[in-house]
Design a protein around this nucleic acid. Structure first.
Lengths: 208, 208
DNA sequence: CATCGCTATATCGAACCGATATAATCATCC
DNA sequence: GGATGATTATATCGGTTCGATATAGCGATG
């Protein structure tokens, strides 16, 4: 799940770990407050699998590009980038800011993860998929939305609404959750509608 | 988090693992679709720490009830309980249905977990706490609600609403999430209001 | 009576979280 | 100018949780 998120962000631009977390927090809704204890291991394993490469963003003065997008490494400095290797020695070396770039293999992996129908059960990974939906074909997009909707409708049916045996607090939680599901469904309805409209001719972007 | 949930359910009545999962799923809102890979280890560690005791509920054919409440260890049984030890041998022993009962230590632990102000950051554990709020003192209940509200308001402030730079899909997700937060806040408002009303004299149960 | 589906327990590896340590950079105030 | 604190940044550790899978008894249906 995190892998998909990271790859999706890296499709846009090169990033380092800290920045990835920020984007996940700000962009992709507040629910995803991912911990560093997840991000760095994820980056390591993505690197090991060849989906991304780490370019030591030690900032070598040059590289004026990095425009807006890539993490701003101030300016003139860089010289000591390599010293990191000797970090444990007395020499104070600049801790390297590792900037990650997605590879072709990574782009392919992202495509697979995004399209994979299974494992979209939880709200988090659905939201994530939807946030990256522009990378999907219109058809895949539509079926993503419809699968999700079907799932929620099913759950709605399973829960006998408003059991009176629960105490007021528990009942309130259950009710609030149920309301949330209903709200999600109508949200999906509007997305599905505008998606269909988009399919039938002119592009109309999703409402809301 | 799971520990609190399990203890809370066991306060009500004795249960076995499978039943715990069902209650978590049905009662405490659909969000908590907890896996067995979490429940059984949790039960084991609670047992090891002395918060619960397992009473081998062997079920020998009887037990037509399954009556609502306690896990139906119907009646006369016990005989083959010990056979479980030889499970790997040829003898087919009934796989024991382990029924767990909360201890005094467990009840105390539950009280501590429930009251502990920290670690209520995520929606799941907040909902869980609230669902068990009847075990809290009115004051603690109120401050639980207020802390949660403050947290959500803060998040609401931090997210610059509706950033236009996002593509429509991501924007829709962010917007929907933000709406959800607003909805949560007004839910909390109504809970807080009725809680205050309850404090000031007569008992009025929470609305909704 | 065979097979299917539900109840039930259990375990394994991988993912994920929260806390913590470490460091460099930057702002600010004295 | 230099102490102090906030922010940016990487990393690791222990423990919890998840998802998949294996096992097995039991009731119903055909």
């Amino acid at each position: 799940m995190l892998d998909m998120a990271i790859l999706g962000l890296l499709e846009e631009r090169d990033l380092h770990g800290y920045e990835i977390r920020r984007q996940l927090r700000d962009h992709l809704g507040l629910l995803a407050n991912v911990s560093f204890g997840s991000i760095y291991p994820a980056l390591t394993r993505l690197e090991k699998s060849g989906a991304v490469v780490a370019t030591e963003g030690g900032s070598t003065g040059s590289d004026p590009g990095t425009t807006a997008a890539a993490p701003p490494t101030g300016s003139l400095s860089g010289e000591l980038a390599v010293l990191r290797a000797r970090r444990h020695t007395g020499t104070r070396a600049r801790r390297g800011k590792k900037v990650y770039r997605i590879t072709d293999a990574g782009r392919q992996l992202f495509g697979e993860l995004l399209a994979d129908a299974s494992s979209a059960d939880d709200a988090r990974s659905f939201s994530l998929r939807l946030a990256f939906a522009r990378h999907l074909a219109p058809q895949a997009r539509l079926s993503l939305l419809e699968r999700r909707r079907a799932l929620l409708v099913q759950r709605q049916g399973e829960s006998e609404s408003a059991r009176p045996d629960l105490d007021p607090y528990a009942r309130s939680v259950v009710q609030h959750t149920a309301d949330g599901v209903a709200r999600d469904i109508s949200w999906l309805d509007s997305l599905i509608a505008s998606e269909r409209a988009g399919l039938a001719g002119a592009r109309i972007e999703p409402v809301r």
